[in-house]
Design a protein around this nucleic acid. Sequence first.
DNA 1: ACCTTGTACGGTACAGCGTACGGTACGCTT
DNA 2: AAGCGTACCGTACGCTGTACCGTACAAGGT
Lengths: 230, 230
Amino acid sequence: MSSPRAARNTLTRDRVMDGALALADRDGLDALTIRALAADLGVKPMAIYHYVASKDVLLDALVDRVFAELPLPQPGDGWREQLAERSRSMRDLLARHRWALSLLETRSHPGPSTLVAHEAVLDVLRRSGFSVEASAHAFALLDAFVYGYALQESMLETAGLPDSPADLRAGMDLRAFPRIAETAALYTASTDYVFASSFEIGLGAVLDAIAGFADRFPDPSRPVTEADVR
Amino acid sequence: MSSPRAARNTLTRDRVMDGALALADRDGLDALTIRALAADLGVKPMAIYHYVASKDVLLDALVDRVFAELPLPQPGDGWREQLAERSRSMRDLLARHRWALSLLETRSHPGPSTLVAHEAVLDVLRRSGFSVEASAHAFALLDAFVYGYALQESMLETAGLPDSPADLRAGMDLRAFPRIAETAALYTASTDYVFASSFEIGLGAVLDAIAGFADRFPDPSRPVTEADVR
DNA sequence: ACCTTGTACGGTACAGCGTACGGTACGCTT
DNA sequence: AAGCGTACCGTACGCTGTACCGTACAAGGT
């Protein structure tokens, strides 16, 4: 009855990770338990531990798996378009796997795909003439924006908009918060458009700021030319 | 033996929340269990549920408790200095309670202190002549930056720098990632300074961008004057 | 064809989690 | 002094991750 026995070579580490990713996407991060994963894979819980040392390393590997989906910058374009595209890809990625951001925070023993993705961004900047210091500031600013934006979106998603039933239930009276109320009205009018355009606007501002870093943190050994920054 | 019985009026909701905050600060978010909290308070676990409906609402209340620590903007200054100060305060706050950011993501039924804090920021912008739309974009950009920056800092903290033992253990060879290596070298040279200045630089860039929003999203009913934006 | 052996998977069990349910004794009101 | 509401306690259930050990299959040597 139930399972006589799994057919010996049903499992691989890749299949375990695939199952974990699918389960997290389908039912959320809380539903990703070893037992549920095993059930999805048609296997008993402890079988998983022959391919993954612990749930912690499974989650670390899952983060890296997500980064592996991130397309690398296209070498043809200028740095500005390359970074803009990567930022949009990252935002899409975090939207596609809404649970990923919460993993990024705590868990962060970067895996190979994570390092490749970071290396690629820094490489775009350095090849375009930005100094090490300018690149570091640029990277920090850009990713802060992208992550922060994704965080805000997920907060709005789980919380609902500020005048949602969740807040009324909590006894909030929006009349005490007129500024929030008028802002909420703006978003309820056309959420998708306003939010998407807000991302592009913020992104543009961030890229403008990054362009300015080239002059503020010049490479001591290799002056930046106009052609570099373009 | 053990506890004969706790002295009847030892507990209040405030004491529960104080204990939870102290426990999270001391031992981290994972250590914040109902049982551990009860032990800290000298009480049996189930006693806590007379003041808090569930652990979920306890965590929601904890987030609001953190926001209550955030100083409100000082009305005397200009909008730029007020927002800069609030951003620094927020960064300090998230550094003081390193666990808070991970709660912000998932859990977000905003409490009263959270709403007050958000209202105050929007009010600064609106009083300085920014339109509703400009204020919304400004708020989104500013908080995205602050949260994103805090997220990066906590990632670096838990991960260690890219050439830490944790990564070497994972079999990473930094020689395959020269851009990351040179950036890591920059940070290992003088972490605190570089990182703190990176925050100020990013913050300045973000505030510059926000200043530009006044022109790009003018208030249709109330044109912005030079004195407003200052 | 048989036997041996390494290993991929299974069973059982334990400690710790959140919390439902019901019991008990304290301190206030009368 | 009596009674009562409520603040705290005991017990227990279903869930989690995972340690430890058992088992049966696939492959290789003979």
